[in-house]
Simulated scan of single mutants.
Amino acid sequence: MKKIFMLLAMLVFIAGCTNQTEETENTGDKETTETVTYESENGPVEVPANPKRVAVLSTFAGNLMELDINLVGVDSWSKMNPNFDEELADVEEVSDESLEKLLELEPDLIIGLSNINNADKLKEIAPTVTFTYNKVDYLTQHIEIGKLVNKEEEARKWVEDFKARANRIGEDIKAKIGKDATVTVIENFEKQLYVFGDNWGRGTEILYQQMGLKMPEKVKEMALTDGYYAISPEVLPEYAGDYMIFSKNTETDTSFQETETYKNIPAVKKDHVYEVDAQTFYFNDATTLDYQLDFFEKSFLENE
Rank of each mutant, 00 (worst) to 15 (best):
I4C: 11
F5Q: 13
A9E: 09
A9M: 07
C17N: 15
E22P: 13
E22Q: 15
E22L: 14
E23G: 12
N26I: 14
Y38P: 12
N42P: 13
A49L: 15
K52W: 11
K52H: 13
V54D: 03
A55H: 01
A55R: 03
F60I: 04
N63L: 01
N63I: 05
M65P: 06
E66K: 13
I69R: 06
G73V: 01
N83D: 12
F84V: 12
D85N: 09
D85E: 14
A89K: 15
E92Y: 02
L99S: 00
E100M: 05
L102D: 10
E104F: 08
G112V: 04
S114E: 07
N115V: 03
I116W: 00
D120W: 03
T128K: 06
V129Q: 02
T130N: 01
Y133M: 06
Y133H: 14
Y138L: 08
T140P: 12
Q141H: 11
I143H: 08
I145H: 09
G146R: 08
K147A: 08
N150Y: 10
E152H: 06
E153A: 10
R156D: 13
W158F: 12
K163A: 13
R168H: 14
I169P: 02
D172H: 04
D172S: 13
A175H: 11
A175S: 14
K176Q: 02
G178W: 11
D180G: 02
E187Y: 11
N188C: 01
F189Q: 15
K191M: 12
Q192E: 15
V195I: 05
V195M: 05
G197S: 03
G201T: 05
G201Y: 00
G201I: 00
G203H: 05
M211N: 09
P216F: 01
K220C: 06
G227D: 00
A230K: 14
A230N: 12
I231Y: 04
I231T: 03
S232L: 02
P237L: 03
A240K: 02
D242H: 04
Y243M: 07
Y243F: 03
S247L: 00
K248M: 01
T252K: 08
D253S: 04
E258V: 03
E258I: 04
T259V: 01
E260I: 09
N264T: 05
V268E: 10
D271R: 11
H272S: 13
V273R: 10
V273M: 12
Y274S: 02
Q279F: 13
F281N: 08
Y282A: 03
F283I: 05
N284K: 07
D285Q: 04
Y291D: 00
Q292W: 08
Q292D: 10
F296G: 05
F300M: 07
N303S: 15
E304V: 10
E304F: 07
E304I: 07
